[in-house]
Amino acid sequence: MTSIGTGYDLSVSTYSPDGRLFQVEYATKAVEAAGVAVGLRCKDGIILGVERLLHSKLLVKGANRRIASLDEHIGMAGAGLLADGKHVARRGREEAASFRENYNSPVTVQILSDRISAYLQAYTCYGSVRPFGLSTILGGVDKTGPKLFCIEPSGVYYGYRAVAVGKGKALAKTELEKIVNKEVEGQTSLTVREAVSEIARIIYLVHDDNKDKDFELEMTWVCEESGNKHAPVPADLLAEAEAKAKAALEEGMEED
């Protein structure tokens, strides 16, 4: 890395001579070390999944969840520094609540993404702070339909059909593209219910058994079945999807 030692990479308030903000780039490095987080937008809702890496086997099973609710109808899955994730989630909840307070109506995913993005961006402007080491996936169903966004540490955000962040995002994206392409080619798109097993499969595929620690699969959705509320995917459905994912993985291994 040419940036190291130049002195232009120590603060977000300093550009390098070629116009880069290295501190923001370094912040994205923190994201790349985190367990993968995936979001998929279906015709009837959205689904979020994360690979919750377990750094100790003494951790309570099913606890320490990484997905947060920002409002009744919006969920957030972050990848990066866990504590930064909690910070952004709290800010997101405040923004969503403030929108309701002001306008007496639920915030749309787009507007909430915009507000969170502005917040993250502010942390890339001043030497007195560091950027968030966090990529944030926001998903929800609002009056405009199912919506999915991803906000980077720089504050830049885009809407997505499907998105993956964290370790192994490249592989996850390839798999997600296959799903989305089918839809583009005119085949009927997935329902969230069908997508549960797809997301489970992708996360199991991305997880590197040899290199990574153990993990737990965490999944939430917003769809008609959940009353258009952000809720955990029902335990039985999740267990079924996990079993299928494991089976598919073993099958794939045998083929190799």
């Binding site: 969840r65 947060a68 609710s69 409002d71 909840r93 007496n104």
Partner: peptide, 19 residues
């Protein structure tokens, strides 16, 4: 109503993470 609904909404949001 508005105040209490907002409070309960926050409680519910937190409950997704900590049950």
């Amino acid at each position: 109503q508005k105040e209490l609904d907002a409070l309960l909404r926050e409680e519910d949001a937190l409950a997704l993470t900590d049950s």
